[in-house]
Amino acid sequence: MGMTCFYLTLTQEKLDDLKQHPGKVRHVIFAKNGSSDDAELFDLEQAWHGIQYLLNGATFGGDEPLGWAVFGDQEISHDLGKGPARCLTAQQVAAVSAALQELPASTLAQRFDAAKMEKAQVYPEGMWITDGAQALHYLLEHYSHLQHFYANAAADGKAVICFIS
């Protein structure tokens, strides 16, 4: 099993509390499965790094708000094993959602270059060239799910925590 990227919605008030108490982040993230609140947990699977690259032309970062779409913005926790969790405020979630809705999957498809992705060491390495069109389909399918996730979170006025596990 490889590294996957997860997203958890929460209220802006809960995010503000976690910013004041970063030690609680691990509990909130890993207690989600038994949680009774209205938080949504979304798994981008192993498409996260490929989508990041197609959105921003880089393996990390990028211009706001698309640069926030995969990894979030501000670090909110200590290292969780594969890096710290990062967060987006409800306002940032709305900006990311709007930017993703304006960017069609066909544009990402035009940016897909397996050789460049391999050279940039986009995770999971080796997949881009060997799987080609199938790898692109995988990314575009997950991009659609990411658009939907952010649209729902923005509509509900939610903040988001992003983390890799």
Rank of each mutant, 00 (worst) to 15 (best):
residue 118 E to G: 14
residue 81 G to T: 12
residue 93 V to L: 02
residue 60 F to Q: 05
residue 47 A to T: 01
residue 105 A to G: 11
residue 43 D to W: 03
residue 91 Q to W: 12
residue 127 M to F: 11
residue 60 F to E: 04
residue 61 G to V: 09
residue 137 H to D: 11
residue 85 A to H: 00
residue 98 A to G: 01
residue 136 L to C: 11
residue 76 I to C: 03
residue 76 I to G: 03
residue 140 L to D: 03
residue 105 A to N: 07
residue 83 G to S: 10
residue 57 G to Q: 07
residue 45 E to S: 15
residue 129 I to R: 15
residue 118 E to V: 14
residue 81 G to E: 05
residue 135 A to Q: 01
residue 52 Q to L: 11
residue 68 W to N: 02
residue 125 E to S: 14
residue 95 A to S: 10
residue 43 D to E: 15
residue 83 G to P: 05
residue 140 L to A: 07
residue 39 A to R: 07
residue 136 L to D: 01
residue 65 P to E: 02
residue 59 T to F: 04
residue 123 Y to W: 10
residue 115 A to S: 07
residue 120 A to T: 11
residue 79 D to V: 10
residue 99 A to T: 09
residue 69 A to F: 02
residue 84 P to N: 12
residue 58 A to S: 11
residue 83 G to T: 10
residue 104 P to Y: 07
residue 37 D to F: 12
residue 89 T to R: 04
residue 133 A to Q: 05
residue 51 I to A: 00
residue 40 E to L: 14
residue 114 A to L: 09
residue 49 H to G: 13
residue 99 A to R: 05
residue 97 S to T: 06
residue 40 E to F: 14
residue 83 G to M: 14
residue 56 N to K: 13
residue 138 Y to I: 12
residue 96 V to R: 00
residue 67 G to R: 06
residue 46 Q to N: 14
residue 78 H to I: 14
residue 87 C to F: 02
residue 73 D to W: 11
residue 69 A to L: 07
residue 125 E to G: 15
residue 96 V to S: 01
residue 89 T to H: 03
residue 128 W to G: 00
